[in-house]
Computed example of a mutant assay.
Amino acid sequence: MTYEVLSHTERLRNKVFAIFTDDVAMPGGGSALRDYMVHVGAVGVVAVDTDGRVALVRQYRPAVRQVLWELPAGLVDVEGEPLVDAAARELAEEVDLAAATWDLLAEVHPSPGCSNEKIRLFLARDISPVPETSRHTRTHEEAELELHWVDLDTAVGMALSGEVTNAACMVGILGAAHARDRDWKPLRPASTAT
């Protein structure tokens, strides 16, 4: 099937995303207008400690007007920064943690019907605190982030019961439990993230 783009119009642009309308030729004839978001991309971190707990945060999200359970996560917005380094930066900035072991857990398109956003989820282990003198000063919604260590099996229950609705958090929790139950064999090298 061929979906030729007949025209491409930018509607809005900011530092995180742009909105476009494409007129797309349909395989059966005719064309249709399709609106979508082009996103800078994101990373998320499933940080698991030696007690089998996962690091979760509660964060207010204006689009849904709710405080959600989430992973430490953020934008891929530093030019040339390797994806695993972006994940390490977000882990440090959001919850004052560092990790010695990094693996790629999953790569997710959370809403491909309207966005090209891709979230790369990394598993972080061998966790340690960031020294007080090196900690990031959080602002806006991030100023209220609190670290919650949740048993991974409890977090799976939260994901399956509807308590966790953030797609990246849900995929990360379920993926980490799957990998753990297989002695971490399904993991990929962090450097393979695209």
Score class of each variant (00 low, 15 high):
residue 194 T to K: 08
residue 145 L to W: 02
residue 143 A to K: 00
residue 178 H to S: 14
residue 97 L to N: 02
residue 104 L to Q: 08
residue 118 K to Y: 11
residue 98 A to M: 14
residue 52 G to K: 06
residue 193 A to E: 03
residue 32 A to E: 15
residue 146 E to H: 06
residue 139 T to S: 07
residue 146 E to W: 04
residue 14 N to T: 00
residue 144 E to N: 11
residue 56 L to F: 05
residue 96 D to G: 12
residue 185 K to M: 13
residue 94 E to Y: 01
residue 166 N to P: 09
residue 122 F to N: 03
residue 137 T to G: 07
residue 170 M to F: 10
residue 103 D to F: 09
residue 167 A to V: 15
residue 70 E to Q: 15
residue 174 L to C: 07
residue 189 P to F: 02
residue 122 F to R: 02
residue 46 V to I: 10
residue 104 L to C: 09
residue 90 E to A: 07
residue 20 F to S: 01
residue 75 L to K: 12
residue 155 A to G: 01
residue 24 V to F: 11
residue 146 E to K: 06
residue 111 S to Y: 15
residue 113 G to K: 08
residue 94 E to T: 04
residue 92 A to V: 03
residue 183 D to L: 06
residue 131 P to R: 11
residue 41 G to N: 01
residue 6 L to S: 05
residue 45 V to D: 07
residue 148 H to V: 08
residue 192 T to N: 04
residue 4 E to V: 07
residue 57 V to R: 02
residue 103 D to K: 13
residue 54 V to Q: 03
residue 77 D to A: 15
residue 154 T to G: 09
residue 16 V to I: 14
residue 119 I to N: 08
residue 164 V to T: 00
residue 61 R to N: 13
residue 138 R to G: 02
residue 49 D to V: 07
residue 150 V to T: 05
residue 35 D to E: 15
residue 116 N to R: 02
residue 60 Y to G: 05
residue 46 V to C: 15
residue 166 N to Q: 12
residue 28 G to S: 12
residue 68 L to Q: 12
residue 52 G to R: 07
residue 159 A to I: 04
residue 94 E to C: 03
residue 75 L to H: 14
residue 85 D to N: 13
residue 4 E to A: 12
residue 55 A to M: 02
residue 109 H to Y: 13
residue 145 L to P: 00
